[in-house]
Amino acid sequence: MGKMNLTDLHYVVEIDKSGSISKAAKELYVAQPNLSKAIKHLEREFGISIFERSSKGVKATREGQKFLEYAKRIIYEIEEMKRDCSDLGKENLSFKITVPRASYISSAFAEFIGMQSKETAIKAEFQENSSMHAIENVLQNGYSMGIIRYLCENEPYFQSLLDLKGLDAELLAELPYMILTSADGDLAKRELKTREELEDGVEILHGDWKLPTGEYTELSENGESLHPHNKIYIFERGSQFDILREVKNSYMWVSPVPEKLRKNYNLVQKHAGFSGQMIRDVLIYKKGYQKKLYEREFIEHLKETIREMM
């Protein structure tokens, strides 16, 4: 006695649907004798009569109806298994992360996404925001992780705040604020030991945040006095490199920028001797949160980017 196969089940289900062996043969592009053979095979296998034949076609018997219910269920389960198993070879990358405006972070994120195989289903949200908004996003808005930035001198305040909010923290990097400017401009040739050496420059500032403060905050009238008269406010971060490249005496306060990005835009970064500010970039997430594999891989890639910069 031969064993039942899935093809025979497909045949009898289509025959039942068509009500005719000849019609089913046309739908399946199969010779009628093959369908008749499948019916006889299954009827012998299970010791039942699946169809009643008449001049009008075929109709399932009572026991045949029960058999067809099982057959349809088996076909459905097999198809479902095929779909599920086809996805087993694919990784799903789905996470939300909120970060400060930092070129090394955005560069590392872009590289990480670019490293994924074409089989990976990607759904990611990458939002640049202030430290307070990052904390809110992790607590209330479904972000699995965040990176916050603050001045080293504000460490006690932020540690207390994170403990109060029930967030864990991992130090990613302790970095100096630096001046980023065109390699062809006058500022690139100066030692920048005093603030006065920047007075004839044009400072580029993000219009919604005040820099350099370590922790990004909203602009205020008091904050304006910290900056020279020549300012360009931008609201799209992508435009900052074009301005730095084309406006030779322009500059920005930034955390260290990856070398390949500086080369692409013909920029240099310089230490400012009058500024001893150090910032900390800290990874945050809810207490007890278990990072997914791709999240751990992204953080490791980010740390590698930091090591290369330093």
Rank of each mutant, 00 (worst) to 15 (best):
V99Q: 05
Q65I: 02
K303R: 15
K72M: 09
G2Y: 04
K82L: 14
I232W: 12
G185Y: 00
A24C: 04
S220N: 06
G166K: 09
K260G: 12
A124S: 13
R73H: 03
N266V: 11
G201F: 13
L42W: 08
R83I: 06
G64S: 04
Y177D: 10
I21N: 03
K263H: 06
S49H: 10
Y11T: 09
E224Q: 07
A108D: 05
N129T: 14
V13L: 12
G166E: 07
K17I: 10
R262A: 13
V13A: 11
Q240A: 15
F67N: 12
E27K: 13
I48Q: 03
T7M: 15
L161C: 11
G114Q: 04
E304N: 05
F67Y: 09
L139N: 06
I306A: 01
I15M: 04
L261I: 09
L244E: 03
E119R: 11
I279G: 02
A188Q: 10
R296I: 04
H301W: 10
V99L: 13
T213W: 09
Y76P: 10
E27N: 11
L283C: 10
Y11D: 01
S144G: 15
A188R: 07
E45N: 03
S107T: 10
L198Q: 12
N34C: 14
S107Y: 02
Y70D: 15
E203Q: 07
S250T: 04
N222D: 14
M81I: 04
I50L: 06
S131R: 12
S144H: 14
S49T: 01
S103M: 00
I279R: 00
L198R: 02
K118R: 15
L42G: 09
N264K: 08
I179Y: 05
R307V: 09
K23E: 05
E221G: 02
A25Y: 03
Q269W: 04
L139C: 06
A134T: 15
I243T: 02
Y157G: 03
I75S: 09
Y251H: 11
L35P: 11
L6H: 10
M81E: 08
W209H: 11
V257R: 03
T194W: 11
E218T: 11
N154Q: 14
Q290I: 12
E27R: 01
L293F: 11
L205T: 05
C85V: 14
A71T: 00
W253V: 15
L180E: 03
E77Y: 02
T7E: 14
E27V: 04
S182I: 15
T194S: 12
S160P: 15
F112G: 08
G19T: 04
D16G: 02
A102S: 13
K286G: 15
